[in-house]
Design a protein around this nucleic acid. Structure first.
Ligand SMILES: [Mn+2]
Ligand SMILES: [Mn+2]
Ligand SMILES: [Zn+2]
Ligand SMILES: [Zn+2]
Lengths: 139, 139
DNA sequence: ATTCAATATTGTAATCATTACATTTTATCA
DNA sequence: TGATAAAATGTAATGATTACAATATTGAAT
């Protein structure tokens, strides 16, 4: 990525240090962070940052389809700079959310049934590979 | 369904009118209702019902895998008496949530990669068939 | 470079869903 | 029919998100 300024310009969004910082954060942390994670980290180098601005910025980036929200945990929103359709795995043990790069043949099928699909969310939950190994060695 | 009493017995859960009413509601309304929808409806015939009881009952039914929660809208929990894996379509226009009876070949693939999968959520959002027709006729 | 209007940021208060908790009631079983 | 553990109830607390009013900044026109 890198050229966040032109990305915002392309969408006729005003270029502000807050938006640039949020875009950069998402671009360098593909961990599907929460609003609080983004806010608390950026607050360190930008002490005047308001949490409302983080919410507002994420909202407008979402409406312009630059980022997408995930509802995988069920109690907090998370954000993803990747805008292509991909699925996610949430580990019950470590809490990490991993990308699953598998293509979903069902999307096409459902569209063929006549549905107009605008969003796809594929969430899998369980124990990730790392945590399984860790449990093994602890026996 | 029908035999909610034995269902609760099988899971060593106490048989209470509240739990029976909630089970019956979910069994006769496969609309993936919210807690408030369940509460407000049952409140009419059971005025002493507490919303906390609805939350508690749904929680214990969930831990016993009798029902499953959906996080499809992103801002409220919904419940489904169907416990088999199936996917859902949320219509942006009418708000209805429909079951999609498609099998997901990715589950097997991800398991083959070593993941231990405990939950699967497939959410699709867009405009449902009925709403598309309605829009057509309104032109 | 300066000015200005539109837009963004900020801080605080409000809202909404959910959870915690103390009290009262009920289900189950001896 | 009690006794006891579990459940139901009502209220208060929490946590994430949104609303809103005041201030500051951006970007374009001068
Ligand atoms: Mn992702
Ligand atoms: Mn369903
Ligand atoms: Zn893990
Ligand atoms: Zn519809």
């Amino acid at each position: 990525m890198k050229d966040y300024i032109n990305l915002l310009k392309k969408h006729n969004l005003k270029i502000t240090p807050q938006r640039l910082a949020i875009l950069k954060y998402l671009d360098t942390h593909y961990t599907h962070p929460t609003v609080d994670e983004i806010y608390n980290t950026l607050k360190k180098t930008n002490p005047s940052l308001s949490k409302t601005t983080v919410y507002n910025s994420l909202e407008i980036l979402n409406t312009h389809h630059i980022i997408q929200p995930l509802h995988i945990t069920g109690h907090e929103r998370r954000y993803d700079l990747r805008k292509d359709i991909h699925h996610h795995f949430l580990c019950r043990s470590c809490g990490n959310i991993q990308d699953l790069d598998i293509n979903c043949p069902n999307i096409k099928k459902i569209q063929e049934q006549g549905y107009n699909i605008e969003e796809v969310h594929g969430y899998f939950k369980g124990i990730c590979l790392d945590c399984q190994k860790r449990e093994e060695t602890h026996k």
